[in-house]
Nucleic acid binder design. Structure first.
Lengths: 207, 207
DNA sequence: TTCCGATTTGACCAATCGGTCAAAACAACG
DNA sequence: CGTTGTTTTGACCGATTGGTCAAATCGGAA
């Protein structure tokens, strides 16, 4: 049992193992988000993480392994805010604070947003099963909650699923298309975006 | 003057030259949209266009040349609908038909939308000057028109630039994140999207 | 038919890619 | 100190990449 000690232990391991694995994931996030899966190179990830390429491959068996570890980690972070929707809260307030949480994520974790965007743009080769499974289930559940709110008259009539797309599209836009936003506005202007989206969704959702 | 005959003549040329160049651009659009600039290979573009790689390089001097030709061509198509906004028309109607035109483009030209998304996601290495120049100017002009409408009270109060982002984000979402939309909805549902966006922007824009 | 420029191709090249491997360096513990 | 297992690395590999080039083929005008 002397072989592949580090590589096999995906979770846990010694302090140094956890640190190096974390550094690799951190570097991988930067590079994959910027260049996509195919555009990213092991050499760049290794150098960004402060390691040699063979040393990197001592901790992860392949480029794909790094990528998939990142996607898996990403998904929880990504779905959490949606799960935080409280069906017994104030509908408009719940949805507005979901929008704000999403916008904050676009501001604070733009690499995660771009990683996700790259994966979906490429046709979700590594995430399709999760999209069709976990995500779809969660969306179905959330749509039922929203439909309930609409039926009770506490929310303006609206298609629940397309409403979610509207929220995702607009919040992630500020991370994924940041370059375009900066080119047009001169600056990132997340505060302006927050005010705008609050106003927009208030008009859309208030009964 | 016997050298580089075809390659030099970017526009015009013989019938066969125009046809082959068009076939290459068509193939390049498919491949670049699917794989991004770095992910695309000349071999794939050539085979998709029905040519050998050296033959492809007879019509375009490099991979970058194909990519840049596509981006340039794309830009006109992309900005045209915005230019079609009629300042003396009905504000809500003008903006709604802009939204619909954009949504139709996402439905009918998804490859163009994804090509653009890939370029921006990668930091717009080849488009930044255009974004900061032509696009910004056009946005400034359009924002002035929208601000005028708001000032006249013919449009609900709203930030013009962020409104444009809202329109772009939501319409392009149906092309760029098509995979996700399909995974969640089971189908693409552009009709549902059209109804939803009409309703959404009507609520947002009507004074 | 002949000729000449336009077009096409097979063979090839240097660089880069993801990944391997054996040996070296290191760390911890007796 | 020596031993043992962990970590790191330089050298290397086959495959793929973007791109070149000389030679072959094609096509139309005279």
């Amino acid at each position: 049992m002397t072989e592949k000690t580090a590589a096999v232990q995906a979770n846990g391991g010694t302090r140094i193992q956890r640190e190096k694995r974390a550094a690799i994931l951190e570097a991988g996030l930067t590079v994959f988000a910027e260049a996509g899966f195919r555009g990213a190179t092991l050499d760049r990830i290794a150098s960004e993480a402060g390691l040699s390429k063979p040393n990197l491959l001592y901790y992860f068996p392949s480029k794909e392994a790094i990528y998939e570890a990142l996607l898996q980690e990403l998904l929880e972070t990504w779905l959490d805010p949606l799960k935080a929707l409280n069906p017994s809260g104030d509908p408009v307030g719940e949805l507005l604070s979901y929008v704000m949480r999403k916008l904050e994520m676009a501001r604070d974790f733009p690499r995660e947003s771009r990683l996700f965007a790259n994966e979906i743009l490429a046709g979700a080769p590594a995430m399709l099963p999760v999209l069709e499974g976990e995500l779809r289930t969660l969306v179905d559940h959330t749509a039922a909650v929203i439909d309930g709110w609409v039926a009770e008259g506490r929310l303006a009539k609206i298609d629940a699923r397309h409403l979610l797309f509207s929220i995702w599209a607009q919040t992630q836009h500020y991370a994924d298309f940041d370059t375009q936003v900066r080119a047009v506005m001169g600056k990132a202007d997340f505060d302006g975006a927050a005010a705008h989206l609050d106003l927009l969704f208030r008009r859309v959702l208030t009964p």
